[in-house]
Design a protein around this nucleic acid. Structure first.
Length: 780
DNA sequence: ACACCGTGTATTTTT
DNA sequence: TACACGGTGT
């Protein structure tokens, strides 16, 4: 492989600085559309090509499977193109198809296959499959390597069972959903049940801790983990076992993280452990042949409700970096040039996000023309709004031959808003796709088959056992099952152990025992094939021999037909998996399937896209309609009295605006149907934050000239600023905050009056505060 | 086992 | 409004 990759010449100065970064920490603050995936993929290529880093020693973490896939693909293309240039003197795409395939497969075998690229969850699952038997939790509980991964509905039903049946709690006072949420949050902070109880030592806290504890019992009993535990338990294992950590620390020399603003506490702990081998971060200096390289944008942090904490990104330089100020630091690069959107759109985005206080100062710099003006439409109601949108769609499509339906996106805050647009699109026979809704792996029939697979691999998985033992009906009734389940409970063994013990089952009447024995025999038959048969074979066996497929055929309804189709789709997925992986074992296929949720993402066909703003993150469209900009809807009413939540809504709006490449339409309605009743609505606060000269309004009164009084961030005029000037603060100062107590300044962001303080509070952890709007009192 | 009806609930959801 | 869920009745 030759050195001196000249692909660097395609990069701008800051991209280049990021890509050429070799050892040590680097935070890449990547604005929307600034080429962050490029920076990531090019840097990985550069590490391998120029610095001769072994691909096995590179770890790249993403949040979605899609992002991981994309990264692998792009790296593969980079290398294949490079080989094409070097060996044939031609760009990859100019080679005949078979040559391209040959080159790609060579790149795969020598490079990309060896890279560790995946989501936090798949990475952790992969390591835990090897190491989990070395872990013991504080109660001495242990898991085996063939653990199941419970999905959200498994978790919900387990928690519900604990709340109402085991602990006999009032599920109105402790809604399983809310309890589940609290437990998940606790896990994402890295808290065990007892630690959670210590921090929440009130009635509610103690109850939740007891559910949490019983829930962990349930997971162990099923030899199962939930998504949160995949990460939390690996962190705990690393903390309690030096050798295991040391091994993985020495495995990963270069760690790269995408969407760093979305990391939560345990994910951060994991990265920190892997990077420093548990040395205190502040004293960690051994960056020889090592790096941590994180890419993110605090302005696009929209998942705090899932425990994502963008202050982790804000604190990167404090944690890993040189702790110097923004203009002196060597450990931060800002990618500010935007290659996606026209200038008007960027100006709107910049102006909007300026209203946030918790951020790293950054602007999107235009590289394209001024573009068309943004159009803002005030509709009478949601029907009128949809009519407007579809009208624009049709006109634009008709009058511009180069514009296709696939160029349009309609983005909204809540899924419930999609219907009106769907109706209007149907009326005009415009093809559209709604993103979201029921996912492939959430369909009942898919979960059924997966439950068979899980049971075969992990017989302790009682939840799966109960799902399939009578699916399709084979005469195993609820009472029989309850009796056996109770016996299992009393003996403290998995239900499967009772079922698979012939003499136990034979104590039942023959009418009950016969189908059970037959079922057990069937499962054992497939278990016997685990080592020898590929996943696809076993799936086919299940469909045929369990009667599942036949049952669907017999039903003969359209719905059953569709289910049958989906089940076959799963079989195809297994076939494809077998073709793409050396290891075709069911274990491996299942481990993968449990963490894949977007396998049914169809490729872009030429249809209008409808989706929530959350789903739109990371995507781009030539023409974007941002709809429903009304107080209470967007920003959502739940955020109106919480400044931090309101800022997150604003970031969501920022994400929406920055999806648009050429044209942006924004709309709001004066009246909207909500939960059956009509409510009048006023224009969103966010509309008033976009400069008027960037927008053309259909109605002069559409936007209030002054901000609606709902402004949740009370901006104190500078003259009455509380107690101190920004400049007065220095790192190390101690101060008092009304809500958080006494803390110490660990870092200062920005300069002048744009200053933000990172303050560590003993009880709250690190918070980013703006001294201009938060009352802070110095303490000595 | 299934159909029916009343009740409660309704942001976002990468894994 | 619309739906999912649980309880009841057949």
């Amino acid at each position: 492989m030759t050195v001196a990759p000249d692909f660097l010449s395609h990069l701008n100065a800051s991209q280049r600085q990021a890509v050429e970064h070799y050892c040590g920490p680097l935070l890449v603050v990547a604005g929307a559309g600034s080429g962050k995936t490029r920076a990531l993929t090019f840097r990985i290529s550069n590490l391998v090509m120029r610095h001769r880093v072994n691909p096995e020693n590179i770890l790249a973490v993403t949040f979605t499977n899609k992002a991981a896939r994309e990264m692998k693909d792009r790296i593969e293309t980079l290398f294949a193109d490079r080989f094409a240039q070097e060996e044939q003197g031609k760009a990859l795409e100019l080679l005949p198809a078979f040559e391209q395939t040959k080159l790609r497969s060579r790149v795969y075998k020598t490079i990309t296959k060896h890279l560790w690229i995946g989501t936090f969850h798949s990475l952790c699952a992969r390591i835990l499959r090897l190491e989990i038997n070395k872990y013991k939790d504080e109660q001495g509980r242990q898991w085996e390597k063939n653990f199941s991964i419970f999905d959200e509905s498994d978790v919900q039903s387990l928690i519900k069972d604990i709340v109402v049946n085991r602990l006999n709690l009032d599920d109105r006072k402790f809604p399983p959903r809310a309890v589940r949420f609290a437990i998940s949050n606790a896990k994402n902070q890295g808290l065990s049940p007892s630690e959670y109880e210590l921090e929440n030592n009130n009635f509610r806290g103690r109850v939740i801790a007891s559910v949490y504890s019983a829930y962990q019992d349930g997971l162990v009993a099923n030899n199962a983990l939930d998504f949160d535990d995949l990460i939390r338990i690996l962190v705990k294992l690393f903390q309690q076992n030096e050798q295991v950590l040391a091994y993985w620390h020495s495995q990963f020399h270069h760690i790269l993280v995408d969407e760093y603003q979305d990391t939560n506490r345990t994910q951060y702990d994991l990265l920190r452990l892997l990077t420093t081998n548990s040395e205190p971060v502040k004293s960690f200096k051994n960056w020889k042949n090592r790096s941590i390289f994180v890419v993110g944008d605090a302005d696009q942090s929209i998942y705090s409700f899932r425990a994502a904490d963008f202050t982790i990104l804000m604190g990167f330089q404090q944690d890993f970096g040189d702790r110097l100020s923004d203009d002196e630091t060597q450990t931060m690069v800002k990618l500010e040039e935007n290659y996606r959107s026209t200038e008007n759109i960027l100006q709107a985005a910049n102006a909007l996000i300026e209203n946030n206080t918790e951020r790293i100062d950054k602007v999107l710099k235009p590289t394209r023309g001024e573009g068309e003006i943004i159009f803002c439409f005030r509709a009478d109601d949601e029907l009128h709004e949809a009519e407007f949108v579809v009208d624009q769609l049709r006109t634009l499509e008709r009058e511009n031959p180069e514009v296709n339906w696939g160029d349009f996106a309609i983005l909204y805050r809540t899924n419930a808003q999609s219907r009106t647009f769907e109706d209007a699109l149907v009326r005009w026979a415009i093809p559209y796709t709604v993103v979201g809704g029921l996912k492939f792996y959430d369909r009942r029939e898919i979960k059924d088959v997966l439950a068979y697979l899980r049971l075969i691999v992990n017989p302790a998985d009682t939840l799966s056992l109960q799902r399939v033992i009578n699916t399709p009906r084979r005469g195993v009734g609820k009472t029989t099952l309850d009796r056996l389940a109770q016996a299992a409970q009393e003996l403290g063994v998995p239900l499967w152990d009772i079922l698979s013990d012939e003499s136990s089952v034979k104590t039942l009447a023959a009418r009950s025992s016969k189908p059970i024995l037959k079922f057990v025999e069937m499962i054992q038959h497939w278990q016997g094939q685990l080592e020898t048969q590929p996943a696809a074979e076993i799936i086919q066996g299940i469909l045929e021999q369990s009667g599942y497929a036949q049952d669907l055929v017999m039903q003969g309804t359209d719905e059953a037909d569709e289910r049958l189709g989906n089940v076959k789709e799963l079989y195809n997925a297994a076939i494809q998996f077998g073709e793409e992986n050396e290891d075709q074992a069911l274990n491996t296929f299942l481990a993968n399937a449990a963490l894949a949720s977007d396998a049914d993402n169809k490729d872009a066909t030429d249809t209008v896209t409808l989706m929530t703003l959350h789903s739109a993150k990371g995507l781009e469209f030539p023409i974007v309609f941002l709809v429903g900009l009304e107080q209470g809807l967007f920003p959502n009413f739940r955020s109106l009295d919480d400044p931090a939540a309101l800022e997150e809504e604003r970031r969501l709006c920022y994400v929406g605006i920055t999806r648009a490449q050429e044209r942006l339409f924004i709309s709001h309605a004066r009246e909207r149907r909500l939960y059956g009743s009509r409510e009048s609505a006023i224009a969103s606060l966010f509309l008033s934050e976009i400069p008027r000269d960037l927008m053309q309004l259909n109605s002069p009164l559409a936007i209030p000239k002054h901000k609606p009084e709902m402004t949740a961030t009370p901006k104190t005029p500078k003259s009455t600023m509380p107690n101190t000037h920004a400049q007065d603060w220095t790192v190390g100062d101690r101060l008092l905050h009304k809500g958080f107590g006494i803390g110490e300044i660990t870092h200062i962001f920005g300069a002048g009056d744009k200053i933000c303080l990172a303050v560590r509070f003993p009880s709250m952890g690190q918070k980013i505060l703006d001294p201009k709007i938060t009352a802070l009192q110095r303490v000595t």
